[in-house]
Amino acid sequence: MKVLEINNVSFSYEKEVVINNVSLEFEKSDFAAFVGPNGSGKSTLIKMITGNLKPDQGEIKIFGKSINNYSDWSRIGYISQQVRDFNQSFPATVREIIASNLYNKMGFLKIMNSKLEAKIIKALELVDMKNYLNRKIGNLSGGQQQRVFIARMMVNDPDLILLDEPLVGVDIRAQDDFYQIIGEINNNLQKTVIMVSHDVNLISKQANKVICFDNGEAYPHDSGDFSYQNYIEGLRDTSIRIIPEHGH
């Protein structure tokens, strides 16, 4: 079964066409990169996959189910550009931050239980932050906060992970760190990852599929030798092999 299918999807903001008849497919353990200039439609498509925008035409299917009837949103993990837009002096511990993402799993009375507590520990172990459970979020470094937000996403054990430019304004070391953790989640846990990024060089080393967006059209590339130059040339030409084959 395909994890995600996008069939002939179009979307316009007022009269401007942002996504034009795009069709894409993603399978289990795919790592797909959405690249392309600003305004090319990458983030708009992500917003449609998260159900925040409705396509004008076409259909999106998640785990084989039409998005219109889809309800199991906890299977989809998401980190947005706004992830660091929080008040650094917010009085909350790592545990509280992660617990908040279990909101939809808490049952009618929305109370934490030992099963949910165990999920929090497991998610923190995944990002190697177990010892920071009761630390205040604002007292952690940027890189550590980023790990906490990955843990917050992973606490629901999502099968499809959407990352919308989570690395804007993050230093190189934290970027490497981020790619390493997401890479492990993709490889070891067989999760499907779709990541929007401007850093074409860096992300193409991780991804097995690169989808180039330009003027609302999407050009998927599966493999090939990648360089920034032929990314620009290859943007419109899917016959140019722009992504290196690697052990995926």
């Binding site: 998260t50 925040n52 949103w73 906890s74 998401y78 947005s80 706004q82 992830v83 837009d85 908040s100 993402n101 909101y103 939809n104």
Partner: peptide, 8 residues
């Protein structure tokens, strides 16, 4: 924003 997207 993040809460909204997480299904809250």
């Amino acid at each position: 924003d993040e809460a909204r997207l997480a299904g809250v």
